[in-house]
Nucleic acid binder design. Structure first.
Lengths: 203, 203, 203, 203
DNA sequence: AATGAATGAGGTTTCATTCAT
DNA sequence: GATGAATGAAACCTCATTCAT
């Protein structure tokens, strides 16, 4: 039955969307499963037909969001040839995504970390894949002589992500920030592009 | 009574030290107040003679640690004249501190964020003071013409902190990291020093 | 429709047989209706076309099993003239039945009692009928002067059943009992035959 | 502190007594921990200062009751020389105990069995000790030539207990039984004494 | 008749906090 | 000041049962 599968996907999405709203609003820990159920307009028990546990909802939000972000980031940098300009494109994509999916971003950045179980035991392979888009650009830049050879891409990619993430978290937590996310993305991109660039490649 | 006040400070410290160990070990949420009490060798109720609540212990750890870090960072950069080299000194100090006070660092970086109550309602003024050491150096650099004038110090200081923080968190969560914290500090300092420097100031 | 009625009986039996297996395996309380449904290869809802509730399945197992046991016991003693020897025949039949229908016996003896609702509210008339086979033999023995007149058949029949039942339960719960059920049946029969017999009837 | 230990024992007993009443009344499964707490006039959480779990309460009732029964039964038969008369003393003691501690008896006989976990995994060593009082008397009788040598004491002791237990359960479940427990005890004792006695020992 | 997705009530246990001693 | 026994609120998840298809 085609329709049954579609209905099943719909209900799963219904619950996930409701969960994002509820978790972003009250925080994961303070949200009760029944809050999510009410927001999704299903019975409490229905949640458990689609998810193994409350934690599983959070993990599912993370995995789906990360997959979208990985796909989106890859698309965003696909047509940019200069490796360093790819970092700028990545930064702008990341911040746009945070701005447009504020609820999801909030859950990812604020609520997800609450579970150190999650951060520790469930190794977020997807996060590494996301980081690796940055790392690959840096390594590519080194191969082309555009990036200083002494840069450690493993460190640099995480530093870049950390810079973006910290700014994003601040923006999420503070309703009225003094600076826009796009401006921040540009500033961070500038800092890293200049910081990574090999002296010989400067004009 | 001088002695009584000293004794009181001692017990308070006893509890705080025990709490750092316990929270770093099991995580804040999974730690029970009675765990802290046992580790501090006091009765459960005694905790409440020194702290308003379990959260208050966490906040106190944060505030005391931040004050030490602020003092330490200021001392570390005090004799460095070049504003950009102050960033390097700050980065090295920060990472050394994380390495030496791993327990405290873990509580601050991993456990503190779990309480979005904390991050939202209790505005961490101390964190801003810490960040401001970086911001002041950047602003100073701009005043001296060493840092590009278009850099927004508010953004840059947080980006710098985010980069350090992300690396530090990674190091805390993974026992066997592939790179040392000092190396990371140097790399991040290099990136930001080069990224911030005004073209005219290059030699 | 003859065939429809037969099919209906078949499915009912299918479900009952599956329920005996499942209940004997996991216990009544730990068994889910969906477990029974899966074992019977029907949908969950189908169960409720044949049984009012989960309890009703248990009661039905009991009633059908008791009816078979009543019929079997009556057949087993039918050709035994001596009332006291009928007790021996009854004991042997009972234990053989337990041995051959271990699953059913387990459900009856172990799982049935878990519901004091059952034991209290639903008066098991069938059990009384089964007990009465014993009681009738004792009363007959008294009428013929073979059994002591001061024996209260109501008490004696239940004592006899209790003795058999306790041994059977032990055997069911312990996979490797030190004595066989037939040996136990003989021993219990001996005890009661001698215990009931009127002094004047001894040779 | 002597008083503290005494108070602790008192509260434990308070809870156990309340639990017996509640479990006997509503059954173990239908009883909520909060029902027991209310009956014991303590808070729900207090229960868990004295017992590991709801099951642990049941097990504790069993163990304490069995210990009392073992002690009581041993005292009851202590001064009876004739092994067979010890069985009568045992039967009378058992039934008197059931009658006087109806609540406890009900919990033991009806509610305990609901947990086949209990009957299976937690091997009731105490029950065996209780049964062994009967078994020892029978074996003693055989040694003295008073009991038929072909009797298997392991089977006979359990048969004797089963007979008593079945009658007791019936009496517990039916408020208005047609026969008294003492009468039943006498009848069962008569049956077994005569059933066990060696022919040569009859006078 | 048969299905199986959806329902929603229900209860044990933990643990931060209090307060009589 | 110090104790620690007592409190009691709070929520996840299971599973018997229903009913639209």
């Amino acid at each position: 039955m085609e329709a049954a599968a579609a209905r099943k996907r719909d209900k799963r999405r219904q619950i996930l969307d409701a969960a994002v709203t509820v978790f972003a609003d009250r925080g994961f820990h303070k949200s009760r499963v029944s809050d999510v159920a009410r927001a999704a307009e299903v019975a409490d028990g229905t949640i458990y037909l689609y998810f193994k546990s409350k934690d599983d909802i959070l993990i599912s939000i993370f995995e789906e969001a990360m997959q979208e972000m990985i796909d989106g980031a890859q698309a965003a940098i696909a047509e940019v040839d200069d490796p360093l300009e790819r970092l700028r494109a990545f930064a702008l994509f990341h911040m746009d995504n945070v701005e447009q999916e504020r609820g999801v971003a909030k859950v990812l950045q604020v609520e997800l970390r609450l579970s150190n179980t999650f951060m520790k035991e469930y190794k977020p392979a997807a996060l590494v894949a996301y980081l690796n888009i940055v790392g690959a650009a840096i390594a590519d830049g080194q191969a082309r002589g555009l990036v200083r050879p002494e840069v450690n891409p493993i460190i640099a990619r995480r530093a870049f992500f950390g810079a973006l993430d910290e700014i994003a978290m601040q923006w999420i937590l503070t309703p009225n920030a003094r600076y826009g996310l796009r401006e921040s993305a540009e500033q961070i991109a500038d800092l890293f592009v200049r910081g990574l660039r090999a002296a010989s490649s400067q004009n």
